[in-house]
């Protein structure tokens, strides 16, 4: 059963001077529980695709169905609620909020979820940090953590709300090979243990080969 289904999705970026077709008539189905890698050269549209799947950007044409919901028709609030409930994001540069400690960073998605008490939020944060081996850093600021630790915290933030889908944009791009391997291992654990669908953009062929499927992109088209 497809958890993500893209039909004839195109994305056109238009400026005063130039029009750029970032994605052209993309058809793609991702099954529930799949771990998919998206590969391709820089500027081929991988991140754009991920952003459209993550409701961070909208398609210029075509339809995007996630969890049987046509997300292209959602307004700002509904879209935000959908992201909060079903999607988790992991970024190459971690994007932790520097002024907040580890616990507060991880707590972020729960803050925007209605009906979760402060005590419940604390419990969930503690639980996920223990699972990722970061509970001893709970009071630390991002600046006091290594790159690998930052990405662990970012993964904790992505999964604390128990999303069905995690979208990872080059999650190991800023890490050395050992840290990168650790992060990949975490994503695989998530995928296997929780059945979370993971869609990952990567340049790393070896990491991509460890996933269920590789989608190769070139100039806004899926080539294989």
């Amino acid at each position: 059963m497809s958890i993500i289904s893209l039909k004839e999705v195109s994305k056109l970026y238009r400026t005063k001077e130039i029009e750029t077709m970032a994605l052209e008539n993309i058809n793609l189905d991702i099954e529930e529980g799949e771990f998919v890698s998206i590969m391709g050269p820089s500027g081929c549209g991988k991140s754009t695709l991920l952003n459209i799947m993550g409701l961070l950007d909208s398609a210029s044409s075509g339809s995007v169905d996630i969890l049987d919901c046509n997300v292209g028709k959602l307004g700002d609030s509904a879209s935000a609620r959908f992201r909060n409930a079903n999607l988790g994001f992991v970024f190459q540069s971690f994007h932790l909020i520097p002024s907040l400690n580890v616990a507060a960073n991880v707590e972020l998605p729960l803050v925007y979820r209605s009906g979760v008490s402060a005590a419940e939020r604390r419990r969930m944060v503690q639980e996920v940090l223990e699972r990722l081996g970061m509970s001893h850093r709970i009071k630390h600021l991002p600046t006091q953590l290594s790159g690998g630790q930052c990405q662990r915290v970012a993964i904790a933030r992505a999964i604390v709300g128990k999303p069905k889908i995690v979208l990872a944009d080059e999650p190991t791009g800023n890490l050395d090979s050992r840290m990168g391997a650790e992060v990949m291992s975490l994503l695989h654990r998530l995928n296997k243990e929780d059945g979370t669908t993971v869609v990952m953009v990567t340049h790393n062929e070896e990491q991509a080969r460890q996933t269920d499927r590789i989608i190769r992109f070139f100039d806004g088209h899926i080539v294989s």
């Binding site: 609030s77 935000a80 994001f89 909020i97 972020l108 925007y112 979820r113």
Partner: peptide, 13 residues
């Protein structure tokens, strides 16, 4: 703010 929006913060919020 972008991160907050990604994790479910609405424009109004």
């Amino acid at each position: 703010f972008g991160i907050r929006r990604a994790f479910g913060c609405t424009r109004a919020r």
